[in-house]
């Protein structure tokens, strides 16, 4: 009764989620994770280019590479270009001294001459220094719209992989894993109920999970099928 009159206001404490190879749900991307897991040991100049639609896990993989490099006492740098583009390209000067560079969202700088040139030069310096490079984008190189042909051709020489979306069988463990990290126990039946009704992409599922988490905290309820039906109006 009191609960319904005065719903609890959930405090927003963002959960710190590790992004490692251990908690990456692999699905059909086994060849990629095996390749990246040992990305330190790749031949110098053997750079990797990943592409895949939003939410398939490219950013997770790149940050897992950084984590993995850290475990081997190597330096690394994660460069989310969609955010860094607001700054001057001097942010990437001299970073060939870092053992592993992970460039995310390279699509964001397509058509920005200054950034394209800076990345091209970085590419050459990384080749010289023998450091590793993993690049991620939403599109294959051919569809990137990079204006600087020198950069596009170098990207096309990378080891290119498409990161593919998880199929329904893999979405359930992912959903359960993410729910667990929020302190929610989702049994298979409840998880499948969500997957059968939601758009079957990771961002869409995580969005639903976020809404359920917020509402469950606020109402002081467990996440059950009736509760989900009520919150999501399914």
């Amino acid at each position: 009764m009191i609960n319904s009159l005065f719903p609890q206001l959930p405090l927003h404490f963002p959960v710190r989620e590790e992004l490692t190879f251990d908690n990456f749900v692999v699905g059909k991307n086994r060849a990629i994770t095996e390749q990246l897991f040992q990305c330190e040991e790749l031949e110098p100049g053997q750079f990797v280019y990943l592409w895949g639609e939003l939410g398939v896990g490219c950013s997770h993989l790149l940050q897992a590479c950084c984590h993995q490099a850290g475990k081997k006492s190597r330096t690394s740098m994660y460069l989310p270009l969609d955010e860094l583009i607001q700054f001057d390209a001097s942010v990437i000067e001299g970073i060939e001294s870092v053992d592993l560079v992970c460039v995310d969202h390279i699509d964001a700088i397509a058509g920005h001459h200054h950034w394209e040139t800076a990345l091209f030069h970085l590419f050459n310096r990384l080749l010289d220094s023998g450091s590793g490079l993993v690049v991620a984008a939403a599109n294959p190189v051919r569809l990137l719209n990079i204006s600087l042909a020198d950069l596009a051709s170098r990207l096309s020489a990378c080891l290119i992989y498409q990161v593919v979306a998880l199929d329904d069988d893999d979405l359930l463990p992912l959903l359960q894993q993410r729910a667990r990290s929020k302190g929610i126990e989702l049994n298979a039946e409840v998880g499948q109920f969500i997957i059968n009704r939601c758009r079957r992409s990771v961002p869409a599922l995580l969005d639903v999970l976020e809404q359920l988490d917020h509402n469950a905290l606020s109402a002081g309820r467990r996440v059950t099928v009736p509760f989900i039906k009520k919150v999501m109006q399914w």
């Binding site: 710190r16 940050q63 950084c66 850290g70 330096t75 690394s76 740098m77 994660y78 460069l79 001294s97």
Partner: peptide, 18 residues
């Protein structure tokens, strides 16, 4: 520091330091 900072911030700014 790794335990305190969001993962992305740590990976972008702290990991490149020697």
């Amino acid at each position: 520091l790794e335990g305190e900072l969001p993962v992305q911030q740590f990976n972008t700014w702290i990991r490149p330091l020697q």
